[in-house]
Design a protein around this nucleic acid. Sequence first.
DNA 1: TAGATTGTTAATCGATTAACAATC
DNA 2: TAGATTGTTAATCGATTAACAATC
Lengths: 213, 213
Amino acid sequence: MSKNDSKYISKAVIRRLPRYFRYLRDLLSNDIMRISSKELSERMNVTASQIRQDLNCFGGFGQQGYGYNVKSLYSEISKILGVDKGYKAVIIGVGNLGKALINTPMFEKRGVKLSGLFDVDCDLIGKSFGQLTVMNTDDMETFCRENDISIAILTLPKTEVYDTAIRLASAGVKGFWNFSNAELSLPDYPDVIIENVHLGDSLMALCYEIANA
Amino acid sequence: MSKNDSKYISKAVIRRLPRYFRYLRDLLSNDIMRISSKELSERMNVTASQIRQDLNCFGGFGQQGYGYNVKSLYSEISKILGVDKGYKAVIIGVGNLGKALINTPMFEKRGVKLSGLFDVDCDLIGKSFGQLTVMNTDDMETFCRENDISIAILTLPKTEVYDTAIRLASAGVKGFWNFSNAELSLPDYPDVIIENVHLGDSLMALCYEIANA
DNA sequence: TAGATTGTTAATCGATTAACAATC
DNA sequence: TAGATTGTTAATCGATTAACAATC
């Protein structure tokens, strides 16, 4: 999707979608069936105008004089975010962070199916966490190809990230969620999506704010 | 610092500072002593103009015809980000994610001193991780007050986050790094800084990109 | 000095907000 | 119908990029 494409959605809008998703789920769980952009804007601390603009990038989900039906808006946003695709994911590197991710409801809530765990450590291989057993990274390409894995979660040391990602990309993995401090990019696989998580940057932004409060 | 203050630095700039910090450290570790905005821009994949604009928010760190001295620029940016403040932090909730954070070099690299661990679980209290022993959350206010704790890292269940944060804010904690899925805000403590980390949002943005590639 | 590269102003671009006609 | 609230256009605001004089 190019920047000049008529259907182009700006990065800023995309980054806000998951937040709408969360707020709408909250509304649903509180049995609120209907909401206006004004009321939602007050809850989310944004402008009503922004909400309407954002949603209208994808279609007219509301109804004049009424507002938005929470259930159907939630369902639309879920679809936009690919929740219904049922993407399958593997975790590469079952260290502390990898283990922390395994046990969260995060994946299930977002329609992502955690389908495999891999590590190089012989002491870990064969051990089970939740429903899954740690496999040898030697076998990850085969596994990803055979099981149609779309997402690889990289929670392994920085030094291994690039080579690992190349191997997985060649095995058909479409997106990487990279937690290692390395800034991953794969110029040979221009269609592969990379989401680099830099927790350290988030901590530093907090420190900046404290220092300059 | 208000938006109309003459020294106001935009959020966008602040969010980029940690990235400069990382790249400069990398340059330093590769013994690169000098860099122009042009060369740094190519490495970081941004415009040279943006780099010069960003840095000039804080002062004229460069030299015409020469560029920037990597060591001194790194040191300036460190100072801006509060690395030299030596902020002390505690982790509240020693679950998987809490444990994962304890063992990272993240804090040390950024001048933050991890100084205490707290949990409600009797089986965990008294156990050691690295240099630290898990304490009872009942004692966290006293500990934070006595040890001048600036940062609380919230890796505890969503349901406990708000009450815990209120208690800590009243004990002088200045900033919260919140990993629970709750969107924390503390209207009664307007000067307290809150950095909400939403890993799920990051995963969803990745899914969106995969779905719309 | 000549060449390089900054600091900074001006121009452009994009994102947010305001306004209001359309319409439920 | 009258009231409410959307979808959408226009206005504003802010952030990014371009340009260049200043200067090392």
